[in-house]
Simulated scan of single mutants.
Amino acid sequence: METKKVWFVTGASKGLGLALVKKLLENNYRVVATTRNSQSLISEIGETSETFLPLEVNLTDNEDVKSAISKSIDHFGQLDVIVNNAGYGQIGTLEELSDKEARANFDINVFGTLNVIRNAMPYLRQQKSGHIFNISSVGGYNANFPGWGIYCATKFAVAGLTESLAEEIKDFGVKATVVYPGYFRTDFLSKDSVKTPENAIPDYEAARNSQQAHLDEMNGNQPNDPEKGAEVLIRISKEENPPVHLLLGSGTHEFLDHKIDIIKGDAQKWESLTVSTAI
């Protein structure tokens, strides 16, 4: 009988992460699931077993992440697929958000991801196999949403580091994929997953309208099913040559096409100046 792969999933207590963990266990994979509060995972799925290891991890603490990876190896004997899913949305214009608010979003969305990669790669590199999924967002390639600049910046960073990672690790037989989810019907837009600026500036009317549209109108009406999203990730993990970039969800191609049109339009309009610097 084939030994099922071991998945390490961060941000596993809700949303796409929880849907993925449940789908993996249904398909007899072995799963390490991390969260800030392991009791929420235990209540939702169950206690530690031969197929499931819930861990309470502070992703911003490199030593805590290192310990979690070590516990995972001790429990299952291997790691095969890493899913850096943990993150949250920080709403607020660049002027409104404090240095503390901006850095906190980067700490989880970017540096938490780097901590996992840094500590998982020695095992993946040694076994000459593995796959790392880094969850970005449609906001990781198209950031024309007023009031979402810091969040989008974190997701652009995730996309950029994954592109480099894919090149760095391919000689070891390890794959990397950046996933750009669109709007999935999860609790991402709830008050527990999205933070608003502590000191809002009333003049930013467009940002407030965007904020309210997401929190009041889009929340609960997202067009994509997280369980189906989880199935896609499992399918991609089986591919011999998986994509480095994976659009995930209905509507994501429209965001991509819009960004490409904008860049091409600007490039064509200002081409004479672009090439005017040649020696």
Rank of each mutant, 00 (worst) to 15 (best):
N209G: 01
I108R: 11
Y123N: 02
T48P: 08
H75N: 05
L114N: 10
F52M: 06
A153R: 05
R235H: 14
Y151N: 02
S43A: 06
A200T: 02
V174Y: 00
P226I: 06
N142V: 02
V178A: 11
N219C: 05
D257T: 15
E56I: 09
N224Y: 04
P226E: 09
K191P: 00
K170M: 01
A120R: 03
D74Q: 13
L20N: 07
K4E: 02
R235L: 11
Y204S: 12
A104S: 15
V83D: 05
V6Q: 04
V138I: 14
Q127T: 10
A86C: 12
I135Y: 06
T162H: 07
E240A: 13
A143P: 09
F106Q: 12
Q39W: 00
V21G: 02
N144K: 10
D257C: 04
S67P: 00
K23M: 10
G149C: 01
L25F: 11
L24C: 06
A278G: 02
V232R: 15
D171N: 03
I150R: 02
E240L: 10
V179E: 01
K228C: 06
Y180K: 01
R36S: 14
G92M: 01
L161N: 11
E50V: 10
A143D: 13
N62E: 15
G112F: 15
P243Y: 05
K128S: 03
F172K: 02
Q211G: 01
K155T: 05
K71I: 02
D80K: 11
S72M: 05
L20V: 09
E47F: 03
S49Y: 12
Q39H: 06
I117V: 15
I91D: 05
I42S: 00
F156N: 04
E50F: 05
N199L: 07
S193G: 13
D203E: 14
K71Y: 10
K269Y: 07
K22H: 04
V110R: 00
V81L: 07
I236L: 12
L161A: 09
F145V: 11
N109W: 08
G147I: 08
A159D: 15
I263E: 06
I73C: 10
L55E: 06
V81E: 09
Q212P: 04
I108C: 13
H245Y: 11
V81P: 05
L248M: 09
E231K: 03
Y141G: 07
S237P: 12
I82Q: 07
E95C: 01
Y183E: 09
P242K: 01
L53V: 05
G229V: 07
V244R: 02
H214F: 15
D261N: 15
G160Q: 08
G15N: 07
L53C: 05
N221W: 08
R235T: 13
N85F: 03
L16V: 08
I91P: 03
I236T: 11
L233T: 01
F106P: 01
F111W: 15
N134R: 02
D192Q: 08
E2A: 12
A153D: 03
N84E: 06
K128V: 01
I82A: 12
V158Q: 10
D203Q: 12
L248F: 06
E239Y: 13
K128Y: 00
K14G: 03
S40D: 14
G15D: 00
E44L: 01
A213W: 07
S43G: 04
L165M: 07
G173D: 00
K155R: 13
S38W: 04
T48K: 15
S193K: 12
V6G: 14
T35M: 14
S49H: 11
K23T: 14
D203G: 02
H131F: 06
N109E: 06
